[in-house]
Amino acid sequence: MQNILISLILGILIGCTFKFSDRMKKINGSSQYLGIIILLFAIGITIGMNRSLLGNLKEIGGISLVFAILTSLFSIILVFFMSRLVLKRRNN
């Protein structure tokens, strides 16, 4: 966990300190994309090797779907009420 936090902080410091050219930003974006692809591939391998997880995939999928729907629904409701509150204050 420490390695992750150190890497994140180091990246933030480098990003704030140095100005990168458009070419370097493009290279950085491509390397991030490649890293995400490798990470997803490794996660897929881990899931494929876990037989108990594969057996419970239907249940996990159902729970994930309910979680995603409820999270989206309550986010929409919260944004609706907060925007009405902000717009009401702005008009006064």
Rank of each mutant, 00 (worst) to 15 (best):
G62C: 01
I27C: 12
G48P: 00
A68L: 14
F41K: 13
G61D: 00
G55S: 10
S30Y: 10
A68M: 13
G11K: 00
I60Y: 03
L78T: 13
S21F: 06
I45L: 14
N91H: 11
Q2V: 14
L70S: 07
L10H: 11
L78C: 12
I36L: 15
I47S: 09
G29V: 11
G55K: 07
V86H: 01
G44C: 11
S30P: 05
N92A: 10
G48N: 13
R51V: 03
M24K: 06
G29T: 09
S72I: 07
L10F: 12
L54P: 03
L5M: 12
N92Y: 08
T17M: 05
F81K: 12
L57P: 01
I76M: 15
M49I: 10
T71M: 14
S64P: 02
I27T: 12
L65G: 01
V79N: 06
I38W: 05
R23H: 07
N56Q: 08
I45V: 14
R89P: 00
M24G: 02
L40N: 10
V66H: 00
N92C: 06
N92T: 03
L87Q: 10
M1P: 10
L65P: 00
L54T: 07
L70D: 02
M49L: 14
L78V: 15
I45P: 06
S64G: 12
L5P: 01
G15N: 04
C16N: 11
G35N: 13
G11R: 01
K88M: 06
E59H: 01
I47Q: 09
